[in-house]
Design a protein around this nucleic acid. Structure first.
Lengths: 148, 148
DNA sequence: AATTTTATTTGCAAAATACAAATATAAATT
DNA sequence: AATTTATATTTGTATTTTGCAAATAAAATT
């Protein structure tokens, strides 16, 4: 049997690299962490600070400062939540949505290119495999449970 | 069709988290970056500084300083290369090997646990899928070519 | 021999990180 | 209702990480 971890390590390294490369779009340049923050804000609907920080497994104080930067860059908006005034709801500004969408397009473009080297059947199998993997990881009790 | 990037993002986030969690073993505590460095030194046989930095897509100056730290921690050894005195060969010390092995064990343990939620057939399919994916990513010309 | 290239390190300033403490508000307890 | 406890977020501060530019040193090329 091949080394399982090695397979994962190579895959995630490549995907991580792709993520890093996709951080500069249309003249705007953001860090990898910031790109992940935009992604999560977009994915979760009207999340609070704490929710996004949790989803990214990020220290809340570091996260708070990153959000301050993103607000200054006019990519993220912080809205007080009337029902609980401790909480701020995060959302993407128009510009933030644009950046997130551009990154998403570029990522999917690359992934399509990768899948173009496979048959349709292989592609379906790979995607189903990843989905299965994600489900099983979610079930696992060894680590990282609280998240997701 | 589901969102392909989303699938990858979730998977790599989980795996990244696992990597982070596996950074403290047997009383020794290292950073995620340092864990990756140990892993690559172990994987490549007698690599130079530049080779490992390239494999990790890391800035060589940052890498140089990380190596200094790891040498001080007695996890990595730097050996001058006689045939080209500009070059240093990196290797793991006994302690470094121990840490890397412990991390590897822990990672594989978790992965086994994840796969225990699948049938043997599913497991084989998933592993073959990842291998195929890695091959196709290597073939791809869109990004990240120089590496690997 | 002189120039160019490659490998690595250091100077330096900016950015990221995380612990502890502060603040503000909500929820629970007395 | 007043007090305590818990939760969400920010700030103080010190450490670590990062990466560009420049320095150094040794090989390769001209």
């Amino acid at each position: 049997m091949e080394n399982v971890r090695e397979l994962f390590q190579v895959m995630t390294k490549r995907f991580g690299l792709l993520n890093k490369n996709c951080c500069s779009v249309g003249g705007i340049e953001i860090s990898l962490v910031q790109s992940h923050i935009l992604y999560e804000i977009d994915r979760l609907k009207e999340p609070s600070m704490q929710q996004v920080a949790d989803a990214l497994a990020m220290d809340i104080t570091t996260f708070s400062r990153q959000i301050q930067t993103l607000v200054k860059m006019n990519l993220v908006k912080k809205t007080p939540y009337p029902k609980d005034r401790r909480i701020y709801i995060l959302s993407l500004t128009t510009e933030g949505k644009y950046v997130a969408a551009r990154i998403d397009t570029e990522m999917n473009q690359y992934l399509n290119e990768v899948f173009s080297h496979m048959s349709e059947f292989e592609k379906e199998t790979v995607l189903r495999s990843i989905k299965l993997l994600n489900d099983c990881m979610a079930k696992s009790s060894v680590c990282c449970k609280p998240l997701f």
